[in-house]
Computed example of a mutant assay.
Amino acid sequence: MEIQVLSYPLEENGETSDASACALAIGHFDGVHLGHRSVIDRAVAKAAQNGLRAAVMTFNPHPREVLGRGSNYAASLTPLEEKLELFRQAGVDTVYVMRFDPAFAEISPQTFVQEVLLRLGVQHAVVGFDFRFGHFGKGSAESLVELGAGNFSVDVIPAQSRDGLKVSSTYVREALENGQVELAAELLGRPYAVSGIVVHGDARGRTIGFPTANVLQDDVYVVPRLGVYAVRVHLPASDDRPAEVRPAVLNHGMKPTFNKEGIVPVLEAHLLDFEGDLYGRRVRIEFLHFLRPERKFSGVAELVEQLGKDRDQAAELLRG
């Protein structure tokens, strides 16, 4: 899969107008949820039907972050590298990563079509029903159809819904904030996951019989609510063992039994029936079930008793 990083105007990047024709899915696609996949899959199908490149245009950083319309959008459901991998898995040939900056935010819908889409060889565009583009979002899916007339065709994909609610990145974020990781998985079409590097912690878990892998996120993710989860941990191959996926119980929280206030949340995963050194390795954690909120215990004995129950419940949920 080819990846091109663009900024407006395209001439500054040496882009030419002789790009081979493509079917292009356009959107930010944070989360690459089922609604986004319906847009991308249509572009891939159209490309296959018409002998075109299957392409995606995504924007980086999030437009809302640049426009000051949502400070929490600095955190992503799918940071760019993960988003690119999901595009690859969907069968995309080319990804255009358009830098979203103040200069790009000010162009008109007409300019976006004439100076961006046509220069990239777009013969067919696919967008969601609520797609907006151009200065102040003046362009809509309907106006893209009008502006493309005579140059390229447009498919507008209707809303995808679950229980009468639109599948959206906002809905996924809300589900995660509430600890509803099963709902998030339904909306995404896969378990929600974060990646990070295993780092040294305070080693307290090992002293009480529950050694944990302390995971430092390697990007700014949206993270589910504080609490305890049943998860799967994807481990990369090492010199002495192949890549594998292990069941685990994970605490996302402040460790209130031991810590005072002012501590930042940490991700600590206790891998079931596992022995080995994970320090410095990059792991991927899939959130599957919310077990309970984090709480403070009266002492170590009560904590250990609860951790045993958490481990048993996670093992039962993850069996098979």
Rank of each mutant, 00 (worst) to 15 (best):
E2M: 12
E2V: 03
V5Y: 13
N13G: 13
T16P: 00
A25D: 06
I26Q: 01
L34C: 06
H36L: 04
V39F: 01
A43S: 13
V44G: 03
Q49N: 06
R53T: 06
M57K: 04
M57E: 02
T58Y: 05
N60E: 13
N60R: 09
R64L: 14
R64I: 00
N72Y: 05
N72Q: 07
Y73P: 00
L77I: 03
L80D: 01
L80T: 02
K83T: 01
G91Q: 01
V92P: 02
V92N: 01
T94Y: 08
M98Q: 14
M98W: 03
P102I: 05
P102R: 09
F104I: 02
F104D: 02
A105H: 08
V113G: 07
Q114R: 15
V116G: 00
L118T: 14
L120H: 10
A125N: 14
V127I: 14
F129T: 07
F129M: 10
D130G: 10
R132T: 13
F136N: 13
K138M: 11
G139V: 08
A141I: 03
L147P: 02
L147E: 02
G148R: 04
G148W: 05
D155S: 15
I157W: 05
S161C: 13
G164M: 09
T170R: 15
E174F: 10
A175Y: 06
N178L: 15
G179T: 13
Q180I: 02
Q180N: 15
L188A: 06
G189L: 09
G189Q: 10
P191K: 11
S195K: 15
I197S: 12
I197G: 00
H200W: 10
G201P: 12
D202R: 15
F210V: 09
T212K: 08
Q217K: 09
Q217C: 14
V220T: 12
A230M: 06
A230S: 11
V231E: 07
R232A: 07
R232D: 11
V233L: 07
H234F: 09
S238T: 15
D240G: 00
A243P: 07
E244L: 09
E244W: 06
V249C: 09
L250E: 05
N251A: 11
G253I: 03
N259M: 11
K260I: 06
E268G: 07
A269H: 06
L272Y: 09
D273K: 11
G276M: 13
L278D: 10
R282Q: 15
V283H: 08
R284D: 02
I285Q: 05
I285N: 02
F287M: 11
R292Y: 13
E294K: 15
R295F: 07
F297A: 13
V300H: 08
A301P: 11
E302H: 12
V304F: 06
L307H: 05
K309N: 12
K309V: 14
R311I: 06
D312Y: 02
D312I: 11
E316I: 04
